[in-house]
């Protein structure tokens, strides 16, 4: 009789123990899946923040370039809005390519332009010599192209309509200023 009672108590204890283990296992499985899901949504959130930062950087570079006295047209020292002096642009570009001052210029302006590509194309007059390539595509006049890491991808290109002023001929063409910012993607 006593042995039977002891056996029954032991079985009950085992069942109880099994129940507890089952609850713990279920809980751990739920937490495990929860962590996986939470991790993936956090990754999405971080990627979205990175995309937003790249976009903000692109807007920042556009505003920077649009307001640079190194590129602005000016008449009697009065700067004009939305206007690029193409002779200044060419000089500025040569500065980055210079053997003597190139390194210093790159180090100075990287704080403004960062990892980006800045260039313009002429829209009107269309087809002028030097403004289209052999296939009829607009020529890109590149000021800055700092795509140093092949593992980066670019943001959407920002486009700003600008006047391209040639102070020698005093002609004003219509062009588009492009800014593309590169960023590293999270995989």
């Amino acid at each position: 009789m006593k042995n039977r009672q002891a056996l029954s108590s032991s079985k009950k204890a085992q069942i109880k123990f099994g129940e507890t283990i089952a609850i713990v296992v279920v809980f751990i499985v739920l937490v495990f899946f929860g962590l996986i899901f939470f991790g993936s949504t956090q990754k999405e959130g971080i990627q979205e923040q990175l995309r937003e930062k790249v976009q903000l950087d692109a807007v920042s570079v556009v505003k920077e370039v649009s307001n640079m006295p190194e590129l602005h047209c000016s008449i009697a020292q009065v700067e004009e809005l939305n206007c690029i002096d193409i002779t200044k642009f060419a000089s500025f570009k040569r500065l980055f390519e210079s053997d003597i001052y190139g390194n210093q210029a790159n180090m100075s302006y990287i704080h403004y332009f960062g990892d980006s590509k800045i260039y313009y194309t002429q829209v009107y007059p269309a087809g002028e010599p030097g403004e289209v390539d052999d296939e009829g595509n607009p020529v890109e006049h590149v000021l800055w192209d700092n795509h140093i890491d092949e593992n980066t991808e670019s943001s959407d290109e920002m486009q700003v309509p600008v006047v391209l002023h040639n102070p020698v001929t005093d002609r004003r063409a219509f062009g588009i200023l492009f800014v593309k910012v590169y960023s590293r993607s999270i995989e």
Binding site: E80, V160, P161, V162, V163, F174
Partner: peptide, 12 residues
């Protein structure tokens, strides 16, 4: 930006 730039350009 489009309108600002448009009014300034010259027609060769």
């Amino acid at each position: 930006n489009m309108v600002n730039a448009l009014l300034e350009i010259t027609v060769p």
